[in-house]
Design a protein around this nucleic acid. Sequence first.
DNA 1: GAAAAGATTAAA
DNA 2: TTAATCTTTTCC
Length: 270
Amino acid sequence: MKRSHRFKRSIKPKKSLDIKLTNSNNEQDITATTSMTLSSSIKPSSSLIRANSNLKPQIPISSSSLISFEKSSILSQDFFQIDALDLAPRLLGKFLRRDDVVLQITEVEAYRPNDSACHGRFGVTPRTAPVFGPGGHAYVYLCYGLHTMLNIVADKEGVGAAVLIRSCAPVCGLETIQLRRGQKTEKPVLLAGPGKIGQALGISTDWSSHPLYTPGGLEVLDGPEPENILIGPRVGIAYASPEHVNALWRFVVADSPWISAPKNTLGPPP
DNA sequence: GAAAAGATTAAA
DNA sequence: TTAATCTTTTCC
């Protein structure tokens, strides 16, 4: 039964042109092969920023800090090994990179141990095992049978915490993003919402547990800290206990248009 | 084994 | 407002 499902899935036409065959670190050649299809949209990195300079500004950041993206370094694993509640706001402004696509994180949510909304609440299962691993890895799951949701695992091994990436602003690779999303727009509808991030990055659940602190595949790069942030309750977790439904563990970049709904629950931190 | 529900999205 | 779509977890 599972087999037939997989088969059916594999022959389904996909918007994404990217294929990942293994869970290890040596998928580079594969993405390189598939991205040849997109070669027209791939440019030398020095011209990437300029080529996409018509993209709407996301975070109120100085142009000098945007230039710094080219020099911005991949974050080390230490960066992620802290409480998800601390990690979540620190991820705002950071960059997600996969091949020619670079996104800047604008909205996140923290999920923590003893949190009735966290996927780790049932303990270690095949799906949630990465959540209990050391911070700095991806946790990718399928939501509503349709959407791949990207989380960044937080804290030390065994804790069980993660940060959901809910929205991003496009920085590079707009054409690839639009191709994968199936929408030719530059408006926030392109990347505001967690399912859209997974789709824009072209990742599947096979990417779960992928290390984000090593070059290649999917990376998190350092980026400018936003000037102001807003916080609010997390989205879509009505099933959780009131304590966790009301917890203000959603963080967004203030004044960014790249934020998912609802926005009227957001406010300044205390 | 069967059934319900889900950290959502796009279209009507 | 609602259909789409399927894996995970739970219940009998």
